[in-house]
Design a protein around this nucleic acid. Structure first.
Length: 883
RNA sequence: AGGCGUGUAGCUCAGGGGGAGAGCACUACCCUGACACGGUAGUGGUCAAGAGUUCAAAUCUCUUCACGCCUACCA
């Protein structure tokens, strides 16, 4: 050994190394591409995490996969850009700051809008960098010099430009509509911000008395408190039971208010009583019915969930409290016919889970139909494709059934809507530059108090981050982006919006490929979320096992399935893999000589030829998997290659040479060993950047960072099928000896001999050359060719391989009973397999219809099995004769 | 209610018409000059159930069961 192993510790100290390595990368500026440099652009924009957030498993997976792609393409020589940034997350951030204020006993109203927004900015400045710092711990190689925030100056300019353009094209409008109102967050919500939860509730049957007769109609409702907003009772026009009521008046119970009975086909004859109370101001369906029948809209619940004056004596009471009171009063008046239990879906706020109150309100909307049509076509025409492709259907379903998008939010934190209302002429002014008076009448203006939905600005992310609406160099060079990597849970929220907005504003789809990865779930298969409190902290996992092991685990699990239930045992397992690589490198570096051979040479020895061939094959596979976004296959391939082939076989095979007497052979092997290690480090680097970079830094004579070295597999792979075959032969022999030793409990101290019987002259040559190597490898005494006419010794273990037999004389070691049991079991299995193969071949349909190569394969297999069985049989006979 | 997905070794998951796989766990032996976070040899599964298509089904089709997700206006 020329250098001691002391140049490397026994284990990779990831805790000590990761921060140092990341700082070096960042300092070197290697994350920052130059738009003027050559190279095909490869661009990813990060799904911007909420500024309020901390790194969770979803981010970890998302960003690991992105970093793998980014690092791979950077190594490939592409002009590679990964744009990072954060989202201002309107409701979420405002809520966080409001909570902080509440601890000081302050409400946002106490501060006023301007002061409050200042406080949020202050908060953002202080804590908003958390998640961005945490991404660094993962090893994410984002170009931090291009970091953006959805509320920064440039992006705000983009938001304003888009709003004005869409307004000018009549794609944004202001309308009185029924919207989803969260009484807790006090804001409107888009349809997809409403989650539906099954809830056990009651269905109340309430009697509405007809006027001028003793008859009555019974309606069923889950929400009696909306009664005071009723402006009709609807029945199906074809319903024989109630036809006669249409046109009559009924009285709302507990009031003296009279409403008409109308006929509308929306009513389901089967549900409840077949009569429906219509509350246009508090139910989206009733709203539609109301429009059809020109019914008045009576609001009986206000923005805070409190009943209004329209509710008469219930005025001022909270909606659910009022419900109980109303039920009790109805009972007293004998107007409550019955109560049935009912489980139904209730809409709740996705943020605070408060039950949504549908309300009529003036809000801004995007007319989505024309945008969605273009966005849908872009995917149909293959301009953007989804991986896995099944998600395209989900995307189409939504695009085809899209409804107008309510974009105004009654918050203070966000992009203020650039609309002003003239206080004298009443006109609405939408402008790129804040106007100071009405352009029509010069009257005073008042700006709309609302802000835009957060997703409005994130919908512009692929082009706003590159500088749009200015015609920047980045925009010209890097738009459209190449790949979007995200979870399928935000296809509607985000992907669809980016498609619509980008196509509208840029005329080009924002990315070529959308890679949808699984969602990381907890042990129960539940989506991890802060509000559920079931979050496993990725930083804790990194602390324990290191970023490389964690990244590798995520990649290895990122297949086609929708769930990724993270098991820490796997992370621990891949932590061992990191250690394995580390020690393989330690071995390699410890065996280098002082004279560094800088130029890779052609491999000479059989192990070298073999490993280099396998290395080329593996590199080609890795490239193919990376191009196909098959992260799990990529991980599996490098894992097995490094562990099973490089470490378990190659390193063992070369030891006899490395520690042998031939200086030229030693030099050749050292050279090849180092070359192979370098290729392995490069192959692995995109998944495990830290340990590979750290090992690279210890290679004498290396230059620069590993992260910029060319990814292997760019050239035509070497083909050396003879090396593969011959190594296979040596492996067969080795396994046979090891197996015999284990089966017969021969202690390692006792040396065995082995006899090889084969008629293949090629293999005999290999055997002659490598028997010293095998002797060393297996701890056998001697290994040699068996005489062609020799018989197997009576007491011997043996293996039958495709190319011949291995005999291991075991005089004194054979336990007849054990051996007999072993052989009997083997014979049994062989007979079963032979029976199966025979059965197939005896079937004329099989021979006639199965592909010829499959039939041929079966024939070969059968003859191999028969050869083995007969050898096993002979051996059993010998055993019998001995006892 | 529709749509989508999942059910394979004790656990977490690959595979996807022709000999059941991986990691972890487990058993036995071994601290052999990179690694005991290691090595070697093993144990372990009627691939959810039933039917069909096929020469051949874990794999394709249908049905059923269980679980999960998404969409939806059944009050």
């Amino acid at each position: 050994m020329c250098q001691s192993t002391e140049i490397m510790d026994k284990n990779f100290n990831f805790a000590q190394a990761e921060g140092r390595i990341y700082a070096q990368w960042e300092k070197s500026g290697l994350f920052t591409p130059d738009p003027d440099s050559p190279g095909q652009p490869f661009v990813i924009v990060i799904p911007p995490p909420n500024v309020t957030g901390n790194l969770h498993m979803g981010h970890a997976l998302d960003n690991t996969l992105q970093d793998i792609l980014i690092r791979y393409h950077r190594m490939k020589g592409d002009n590679t850009l990964w744009v990072p940034g954060t989202d201002h997350a309107g409701i979420a951030t405002q809520a966080v700051v409001e909570r902080a204020l509440a601890r000081e006993g302050i409400k946002r109203e106490d501060l006023g809008r301007q002061k409050f927004v200042e406080r949020v900015w202050q908060w953002k400045k202080e804590y908003g960098g958390n998640i961005v710092r945490q991404l660094r711990r993962l090893g994410a190689s984002c170009d931090w010099s291009r970091e953006r925030f959805t509320l920064d100056e440039g992006l705000s300019k983009a938001v304003r430009e888009v709003f004005v353009r869409l307004y000018e094209e009549d794609l944004i409008y202001l309308g009185d509509y029924i919207i989803n109102w969260c009484p807790h967050c006090r804001t409107a919500l888009a349809d997809i911000e409403v989650e539906h939860q099954d809830q056990a509730d009651s269905l109340y049957y309430i009697r509405y008395r007809a006027e001028g007769s003793r008859e009555s109609l019974v309606v069923a409702t889950t929400r009696p408190e909306t009664m005071f907003g009723d402006t009709a009772v609807a029945v199906h026009p074809a319903d024989e039971r109630f036809k006669a009521y249409i046109g009559q008046q009924v009285t709302i119970p507990l009031t003296s208010k009279s409403i008409p009975v109308i006929g509308d086909e929306y009513v389901d004859l089967e549900f409840g009583t077949g009569a429906l109370k219509v509350t246009p101001a508090h139910d989206p369906n009733d709203f539609q019915i109301g429009l059809r029948h020109s019914l008045p809209q009576v609001t009986c619940i206000d923005l805070e969930g409190i009943l209004t004056e329209a509710a008469g004596r219930y005025h001022g009471r909270e909606r659910f409290e009022a419900r109980a009171a109303i039920i009790s009063d109805l009972e007293k008046e004998e107007l409550l016919v019955k109560v049935e239990p009912l489980t139904h879906a209730v809409g709740v706020c996705y943020r605070c889970r408060t039950v949504i109150e549908p309300l009529i309100s003036k809000q801004w909307f995007v007319r989505t139909a024309p945008l969605a049509k273009v966005a849908s076509e872009a995917v149909k025409e293959g301009k953007t494709s989804f991986i896995p492709a099944q998600w395209e259907k989900t995307y189409f379903d939504w695009m085809d059934n899209i409804r107008d998008w309510c974009i105004s939010r009654q918050l203070w934190w966000g992009h203020r809507i650039p609309a002003w209302y003239c206080q004298s002429c009443g006109r609405t002014v939408v402008a790129r530059v804040d106007p100071d008076k009405c352009p029509h009448c010069s009257g005073p203006l008042e700006q709309d108090p609302d802000v835009l939905d957060t997703w409005f600005s994130s919908g512009l992310w692929p082009f706003s981050t590159l500088g749009w609406p200015d015609e920047t160099k980045d925009l010209a060079r890097y738009y459209p982006t190449t790949v979007l990597v995200t979870g399928f849970d935000i296809i509607f929220f985000w992907v669809a919006r980016m498609m619509m907005m980008s196509l509208k504003m840029m005329g080009q789809a924002p990315f070529r490929t959308v890679v949808l990865h699984p969602l990381v779930r907890d042990a129960q298969g539940q989506k991890m979320s802060k509000s559920k409190g079931n979050v496993i902290d990725p930083l804790g996992v990194i602390d324990l096992y290191g970023a490389d092991a964690f990244r590798f685990t995520l990649a290895s699990q990122a297949g086609q399935s929708r769930d990724l239930k993270l098991a820490t045992s796997r992370v621990a397992g891949y932590g061992k893999f990191v250690n394995k690589i580390w020690n393989a490198a330690r071995f390699t570096l410890a065996n280098l000589s002082d004279e560094i051979l800088s130029e890779p040479r052609e491999p000479v020895s059989l192990p070298d030829r073999w490993i280099r061939t396998r290395l080329d094959e593996t590199a080609a596979e890795c490239r193919a998997y990376l191009e196909a976004f098959a992260f799990d296959r990529l991980a599996g391939t490098v894992y097995h290659f490094i562990w099973d082939e490089f470490c378990d076989w190659y390193l063992e095979l070369i030891k006899p040479i490395l520690f042998g007497p031939d200086p030229a052979a030693i030099m050749a092997v050292r050279q090849n060993l180092l070359t192979s290690l370098a290729v392995i480090l490069k192959l692995l680097h995109p998944i495990m950047p830290f340990v590979t970079e750290e090992i690279w830094s210890k290679i004498p004579g290396r230059t620069g960072c590993l992260m910029t070295k060319a990814y292997p597999g760019g050239q035509k792979p070497r083909e050396d099928s003879r090396a593969l075959e011959q190594i296979g032969f040596l492996m067969d022999i080795t396994r046979a000896v090891r197996s015999a030793r284990a089966d017969f409990r021969v202690p390692p101290s006792e040396k065995l001999t082995a006899r090889i019987k084969t008629e293949d002259p090629d293999l005999l040559k290999v055997l002659a050359e490598y028997s010293p190597l095998l002797v060393r490898l297996m701890g056998v005494q001697e290994i040699a060719q068996a005489e062609p006419e020799a018989q197997k010794p009576r007491e011997a273990a043996f293996s039958v391989l495709s190319w011949g037999e291995v005999w291991i004389p075991l005089a004194g070691h054979i336990d007849l009973k054990v051996e007999k049991a072993r052989l009997t079991k083997e014979a049994e299995q062989l007979r079963k397999d032979i029976g199966q193969a025979n059965g197939k071949l005896a079937n004329p349909d099989y021979v006639a219809k199965a592909p010829p190569e499959v039939v041929e394969e079966t024939r070969e297999r059968l003859s191999d099995l028969e050869k083995r069985l007969s050898a096993v049989g002979r051996s059993l006979e010998t055993l019998a004769s001995m006892s």
